[in-house]
């Protein structure tokens, strides 16, 4: 909450922070596109039209049509819903689990810290992507498996970040004051320590959204994520790969959409870090 208040405070536009402004502007654009997809998209994203297959970009179809005659522009617009949901929804569980583990380890220290950190070492020594693929292969492909797999492996970075902040904050006066006043450990951790670690976490969330979008679209490209005929950018690229010598537009535009969406969150992360002097 404190981070949100900080964001909205007057200081947020000072130093001409173009990076942050541009990032927020682009992200808001994507959110608007995603929410109003049914009204913005000129065609139905899954309606097939055999008379209009593989048409190059034209006035009627600015991004062309695919092998089923579906309008690529409309599919890119509808795809923003899925990809944005993957990116923003995917970081949710990791944030909660990671922050909790980081707080517990950093605040209590001792045996709890040792155990949790050993657990973290084990999780981190598995390559993230391979572990995700392995978990999804057991759960079966789909958006839900993607979220569960992320919850199981995505928390490590948050736990590390929050733990290192908590180790410092644990010795500060306000924590001692809270302890003297008889506040419960949970209250001190979540109401006092965590808000003071919120900014670096917020910066990390923004870069994590970028990684999660890339991860989700890669998995969908491999056939392990979202399933067709849902319009998702990774799937569109996979489908377009069969036509790269004849219809470049099917592949090009969804990829550009990923790059621009990812860029908007990278810009916010960089802008925030510069604004509040958070080192990554």
């Amino acid at each position: 909450m404190r981070a949100a208040r900080l964001l909205l405070s007057v200081g947020f536009l000072k130093n001409n922070n173009l990076t942050l402004v541009l990032g927020i502007f682009l992200s808001v654009c994507w959110v608007v596109i995603a929410i109003f997809a049914p009204w913005i998209a000129p065609y139905d994203p899954i309606a097939q039209d055999v008379a209009r297959t593989l048409q190059p970009p034209s006035f009627a179809h600015p991004f062309g049509t695919d092998n089923f005659g579906r309008d690529v522009l409309s599919r890119v617009i509808w795809g923003s819903r899925v990809d944005l949901a993957m990116g923003l929804g995917g970081v949710f569980a990791p944030i909660i689990i990671g922050c909790t583990i980081g707080l517990l380890a950093g605040y209590f220290g001792g045996i709890i810290d040792t155990l949790l950190m050993r657990f973290l070492d084990i999780t981190i020594s598995f390559p993230f992507f391979i572990l995700m693929i392995a978990i999804i292969s057991i759960l079966g492909p789909g958006l839900m498996s993607f979220f569960i797999a992320l919850a199981l492996v995505g928390w490590v970075s948050y736990a590390r970040l929050v733990r290192s902040r908590t180790l410092v904050l644990r010795h500060s006066d306000f924590v001692a004051a809270g302890q003297i006043l008889g506040f419960s450990s949970i209250r001190i951790m979540f109401r006092h320590v965590l808000p003071n670690a919120a900014l670096p976490v917020l910066v990390f969330i923004m870069s994590d959204v970028v990684l999660t979008i890339l991860l989700g679209s890669s998995l969908s490209y491999l056939g392990l994520g979202v399933q067709p005929p849902l319009a998702e950018w990774g799937i569109m690229i996979a489908e377009g790969q069969n036509f790269i010598s004849t219809a470049w537009w099917i592949t090009l535009f969804p990829g550009l959409a990923i790059v621009i969406l990812a860029l908007s969150f990278s810009l916010i992360a960089d802008g925030l870090a510069a604004q509040y002097k958070v080192s990554e």
């Binding site: 970028v210 990923i258 790059v259 860029l263």
Partner: peptide, 9 residues
């Protein structure tokens, strides 16, 4: 920009 480049694309 490179931070958000999907390798497969």
């Amino acid at each position: 920009v490179g931070l958000g480049l999907p390798t497969f694309w």
